[in-house]
């Protein structure tokens, strides 16, 4: 029955809907959070892409943007916030620090990459990435969700 036309189209419609109605989580860590706010702002206006409902509680959100350096003291808290999010949930690792430690990788209290803490779907490079880069990451995530490449 899974091959029938009705089921596949419904599945596809669901995936399309999931991708186009992401609710991001207001979660700023460091410098990249300012660029994330710029992306929300009037010039870049990422509400155009259907992800403008920023939620303050992890239980309402399904997209976590890790924007900034992850320190060892913060990492367990990030894990806890991630565990509190309801499925489906996605993670964008924004910037060099969150992706690989960035300029702080030699430090004693910095986690080199948020992928050691939570599973990451999209990495964005740059220190900090421009808002355009973040918007591209969002578009990429939406496309991968719609085409079924990313499932959670």
């Amino acid at each position: 029955m899974t091959d029938s036309i009705l089921l596949t189209t419904l599945d596809e419609a669901l995936r399309w809907g999931k991708g186009k109605s992401l609710w991001p989580f207001t979660f700023g860590l460091a410098c990249c959070a300012i660029e994330m706010m710029s992306a929300m702002g009037p010039d870049y206006d990422w509400a155009r892409f259907g992800a403008d409902v920023f939620r303050d509680s992890p239980r309402h959100a399904d997209l976590m943007i890790v924007s900034g350096t992850v320190t060892k003291k913060m990492a367990p808290r990030i894990r806890r916030l991630y565990d509190q999010m309801a499925f489906p949930k996605y993670v964008i690792s924004m910037g060099a620090c969150a992706s690989a430690g960035g300029p702080y990788v030699r430090g004693y209290s910095v986690v080199d990459g948020v992928d050691k803490v939570v599973p990451v779907d999209i990495y964005v490079y740059g220190c900090p990435p421009r808002p355009e880069a973040l918007i591209q990451a969002l578009k990429q995530l939406q496309d991968s969700i719609a085409s079924g490449k990313v499932r959670h």
């Binding site: 060892k72 003291k73 990492a75 367990p76 808290r77 806890r80 030699r106 004693y108």
Partner: peptide, 11 residues
Amino acid sequence: YPMDKKQYVNL
């Protein structure tokens, strides 16, 4: 201070 000796934090 030994910079190569890493310490790990959890809750």
